[in-house]
Design a protein around this nucleic acid. Structure first.
Lengths: 335, 335
DNA sequence: GAACTTTATGCAAACGTTTGCAATTATTTT
DNA sequence: AAAATAATTGCAAACGTTTGCATAAAGTTC
């Protein structure tokens, strides 16, 4: 910062060429002779030159920025502390970077309700990735209807006019439940709130599995937090005793909360109660007993999200897509 | 997107005033009569108008964007999956938003080595928040020396010409160790890599506590991951048997990995081995036994980071600052 | 070697704001 | 009521790129 900031024109003067040439060279435009391009790039590097993105964005009407909105339900404690959502953000960051895109991190608070306006009209970003459907799709739909390039991490089976990428939650729920049934469980509790899109699908998968086995459903509807799970299971035990021998939890954090409640009462896992979670977060492997879980392929999903956003940016359309899901069998269930 | 994008000039024409007036009104400039300001703001809202940030940034030479760099050590597996770092990012996001600033999420991969150039010269952001000191401060120092407004989450005691905000790691290490000693532990293992700045301070706190108690230090140096901890403790047990009765872990994830190794061998916690972690992540409370930990006040730290960055943006200087730290006593240690 | 094509570069006009200064109008002072 | 001051608004010049079009140089064809 000691010397005055160099601009394109200065660099052009130094090289004895026009600004057009420098601009094109730095953007690797084949109109410019390869040799010249390399020379100018080198010069830029030597002089520590960097294009002014503000000017560039203004002129080119492109930002190369993608807004990522963590769309947690207000009124729920999920949010910022949910390791799974944050992991997804991290993966998206990597996927975007690989495409030379930058990530503007945002949340419903900052962006307000009119996302099209806040992000796109204002040229803050070229497109939007929404992490989590939330309970109310109004904001997403409004943005999509306004023609904003937009993709969503969520339940791909939700009917929508925007692409949703996510796991096959129905199959996930079914797999988990079938696994518990196969281990001999007869009374399996579903722990989670079926009102939430993704969790709803998991719930339906759970019901489907129970149905073919002629078992009876039992839902404990709670917030998607470990402490809610802990208290939920505790209350159930107090009220009705050990009336179940399996738990299908809607997330690993929830499963771990339940696990804690069980362990405190010396209920054996998996002998008295078998347990399967969802997400396969790092902790699933670390807990004791380790937690069986449905693994979501967040890395692949992130790549897909970015691909589909890119397609929209190029004027093509993109469809919702399901990513494969996998049961990771660990100690908390009888495999 | 059906109709052509409105610009400031259009809005001005609609209102029958000049663009200067509209610009000033929307920026709440007191030069403009309050009444006019309100009228124009309303008009803008009605027409779904949004300032073009690219143009605005170009002209005003300000972005209102802060780059946040997750500065994980390459070669380590910490990174993206570390729930603590991500939690800090989440808190910073909130703190920035409260000041009307936006968050550009980045990592060492995208930003390269010359942060001043990549973020500031290019007008991508006005300042930088670095999360984590990493092992090599070269990039940070280069940026700070270039005059970039910059703050760092890390060990505030590290000598530096840029402000570092972080917990009092020395006191944290000492508190944790003293707590273990008070519980009757005689042979306390330090689990973590003292070569890392923050962990080094924790280690010195550990040594200080041992010293006054005339106990002997024993370091198991590992990567800051739960699986490294798991294997580290396993190997130690295989090689030397149960030669310790306390573990001071450099993070909760590490502590939980160690806990798993202990539980697998039916070593009682806290009776045979007492355990204290660091960070107080959500899992600490959920694990069984729940994990005693040193709680870092990430929320307060984030607010401070943003304040200090803001100060620098306004040309003032800012000092490193320590945030208070607290022992959370749970079941994994004898309290 | 003239006419044509291809390749490489330059000219100059945008892109949509903000802001110093000038100009106008309203208010106060003498 | 004129003069001086304060409160509002407008004019027009930036901010630093990118890009359509024109031009110049080099290569090709007959």
């Amino acid at each position: 910062m000691n010397t005055k900031q160099l601009k394109l024109a200065d660099l052009a003067k130094l090289a004895g060429v026009s600004t057009s040439t420098v601009s094109r060279a730095l953007n690797d435009n084949p109109l410019i002779k390869k040799e010249t391009r390399d020379k100018l790039k080198l010069l830029a590097k030597q002089h520590n030159f960097s294009l002014n993105t503000a000017a560039s964005r203004l002129r080119s009407q492109k930002t190369n920025v993608v807004a990522v909105i963590i769309n947690f339900d207000s009124g729920t404690e999920q949010s910022i502390n949910d390791p799974f959502l944050l992991k997804v953000v991290g993966e998206i960051n990597l996927a975007l970077n690989k495409q030379g895109l930058e990530l503007l991190l945002s949340n419903s608070f900052m962006a307000g309700d009119d996302w099209a306006n806040y992000f796109i009209n204002s040229r803050r970003a070229d497109g939007i990735i929404v992490v989590g459907q939330g309970k109310d799709p109004a904001n997403i739909e409004a943005a999509a209807n306004a023609g904003v390039p937009l993709v969503v991490w969520g339940d791909p089976k939700t009917p929508s006019n925007y692409p949703i990428v996510g796991s096959d939650n129905f199959v996930g729920g079914r797999l988990a439940t079938e696994h518990l049934l196969a281990g001999g469980a007869k009374n399996i509790v579903f722990l989670g709130d079926p009102g939430h899109a993704e969790i709803g699908e998991r719930y339906r998968g759970y019901l489907a599995a129970l149905n073919t086995a002629n078992a009876i459903a039992h839902v404990v509807s709670i917030d998607i937090t470990s402490s809610a799970a802990y208290h939920g299971i505790n209350q159930l035990l107090v009220a009705k005793g050990l009336c179940f021998d399996g738990i299908m939890a809607c997330s690993d954090m929830v499963a771990l909360g339940a696990m804690k409640a069980l362990k405190e009462r010396y209920i054996s896992i998996p002998n008295d109660v078998a347990l399967v979670g969802f997400d396969d977060i790092a902790m699933a492997d670390v807990s004791h007993p380790s937690l069986s879980s449905i693994k979501q392929n967040t890395q692949r999903a992130s790549v897909l999200l970015v691909e589909k956003l890119l397609a929209q940016l190029q004027g093509q359309s993109a469809e919702s897509q399901v990513v494969e899901i996998e049961l990771i069998n660990r100690q908390s269930s009888k495999g």
